[in-house]
Simulated scan of single mutants.
Amino acid sequence: MKKTGFIILAVVILGIILYVTIVIKVIEFLFGAILFLVAAVILWIIYNKVRSKVEKNF
């Protein structure tokens, strides 16, 4: 393989690795954001249930 062909192959392989890494990071970010929103909704529901019970007792 000539020198230019090797450089082109190396650039393509590095580009694929970079692309896959970025895609994985985006997926991780979106998964984290979804988990954060789910946790916020669950905490809001629990807060409302506890608040209503406390208001009835006091």
Results as ranks from 00 to 15, higher is better:
F29W: 00
K3F: 09
I7V: 09
F31G: 02
R51P: 04
K25T: 01
E55W: 01
K2Y: 01
I22G: 08
S52Q: 11
L9P: 02
I17Q: 07
I24V: 10
F6L: 14
A10N: 05
L14C: 14
M1G: 15
T21A: 15
A39H: 07
I13G: 05
V41H: 03
M1K: 02
V41K: 12
V41S: 09
I16T: 09
G15I: 05
T4F: 00
V54S: 01
K53R: 03
L43P: 07
I45V: 14
K25V: 12
M1A: 12
I7N: 07
I17D: 00
L9I: 01
K56E: 11
F58H: 11
G5D: 15
L9C: 12
L35G: 11
K53I: 02
L30A: 05
A40W: 04
G5I: 02
A10V: 09
N48R: 12
I24R: 02
I7D: 02
I13H: 06
G32W: 00
W44D: 09
V20S: 04
F36C: 05
K56Q: 08
S52I: 04
M1F: 05
T4L: 12
K2I: 09
L30Y: 00
L14D: 00
K2V: 09
L35Q: 14
L37A: 11
V41L: 03
Y19Q: 08
L35N: 13
S52C: 03
A40D: 01
G5W: 05
L37P: 03
I17K: 10
K56R: 10
I7Y: 05
L35D: 13
F58R: 13
G15R: 03
I24F: 02
R51S: 13
I16S: 03
T4W: 01
N57K: 13
T21F: 09
I34T: 05
L14G: 11
L43M: 14
V11L: 10
T4D: 13
I42Q: 14
W44N: 13
I24Y: 02
K3N: 06
V12F: 10
R51F: 07
I16H: 06
